[in-house]
Amino acid sequence: MNKTINLTLKIWRQKDRSDKGRFETTPARDISTDMSFLEMLDVVNERLTLEGREPIAFEHDCREGICGSCGTMVNGRAHGPLKGTSLCQLHMRHFKDGDTLTIEPWRARAFPVIKDLVVDRSAYDRIIQAGGYVSVNTGSAPEANTLPVPPELAEKAMDAAACIGCGACVAACPNASAMLFVSAKISQLALLPQGRPEADRRALAMVRAMDACGFGNCSNHRECENACPKEISIANIARLNREFLHAGFISHET
């Protein structure tokens, strides 16, 4: 099954935040179809290094679809063509000999480009800081089984909790909205009894933080759901909206 293909990469190069950046064309030769997309980039980088040029900066770590580090646009699609698959889990058997791949970083006002394909996603951490937690100090937790959770709810919470914080939803959205990411965390904690006491405050605070970070509004394009490597459902956005409205309604805060 293992064969090799040759590709042409049109890849975004940008020296630093202030550089304007441009596409550069470079070949990727003798690529085994068993390689992952990132291994293909490794091969190109080894060649660039030996040719005395700077390798392409890209983010990665676990290379198994869980840390959320990786991600670029490939031919206009976040994480490439395969549904439910992060870039590191995309293998070259999904491409054909002679293909040209356009590879560029996430594009969003709230995710400025740092270098080549690396962007600044610290806005996500700021949103979590605003309320993506249950306020329970170490040591003060009750015995774990005192609060039964219906397995359907636990499963739904787990579906939402599977978000890896990669940013593809933002990159795919025409408005660069972070609603899918934010709704995943709000849903996880709103579904579980442990998260209920703070649900209102959390929804208000996280949405406020999201707006402050410069993300756009959600206008139901559903591109986020299509791009998400963990297939987080937009049903979570509907839940966020309900939580948010409810919170706004009963809120004593302004």
Binding site: Y133, V134, V136, T138, G139, S140, A141, P142, E143, A144, N145, L147, P148, V149, P150, P151, A154, E155, A157, M158, A161, Q188, L189, L192, Q194, G195
Partner: peptide, 22 residues
């Protein structure tokens, strides 16, 4: 045991049995 209590309280969605227990 206290670790499991702590994580559950934080909202870690551990797998559960039909009756809702861990």
């Amino acid at each position: 045991n206290a670790i499991i209590d702590q994580c559950t309280a934080q909202g870690v969605p551990f797998a559960r049995e039909y009756g809702g227990l861990l």
